[in-house]
Every structure is written in C-alpha cells, then in structure tokens.
Amino acid sequence: MPLDILTVRRIARLARLRLEDSEIERLRQELGGILAWVEMLDELDVTGVPPMTGAVAMALKMRPDLVTEGGNPEIVLGNAPERIGDFYAVPKVVE
C-alpha cells in the first residue's frame, strides 16, 4: 500500500521526529517499499494462532516489596542536559 506524505508527517509527529522536507519524500518511498514487502505475510492464514508476545515461556518473577534504590538524586540527575536544583528543567509547558 503506497504511503502518502501526510501519513509520513503524522507518524513522524507521533514519534516526535523532526524531518527535513528532503527526508520526507525519501522516507515515504522507503517505508512504502518495506510495507509492500512485508505484505508477503498476507499469504499465510493465521486464524486461531495465538500471538507470540515474547521469546521466553515462563511465569513473571516478582520482587519483594523492599526499598533498595533511590536516595541519591545525583545518580539520576548527573547526566541531565539541564537542571534547576534537584529538578530536571524543560521549556515551560502551558496546560
């Protein structure tokens, strides 16, 4: 199914990716090509096949309810591009 420019822009917006106009047409073609190729899967009848959500068959292991982390803001703030005190800082969000 050929992709249109608008769809590429919508998806890019959803993915929070700023694309140059020159990139968009190229991506439209490439993604269209990949989508056409994966349509090969339509040859298969998968009625009644349970989807495989992961590569390991086991029960989820649970951790005990113990506080074992935190307590040192520097660990999580040490790499921050911008901080104010012990907060991360971002451009003001108007709600």
């Binding site: 506080v67 982390e69 012990d86």
Partner: peptide
Amino acid sequence: NAKLFSGASTAFGAPPNSQVSI
C-alpha cells in the same frame, strides 16, 4: 514500600528526585 517495577520508595513528600531509581 517500593514502586511497581523498581526498588525506589513511595513515601509522600520527599525532596525532589530523591526517590527515583535508574
């Protein structure tokens, strides 16, 4: 005591980013 998927504390009113795990 701890969060749903990490070992950081849930206590209310702590200093900012002091109860945050990686």
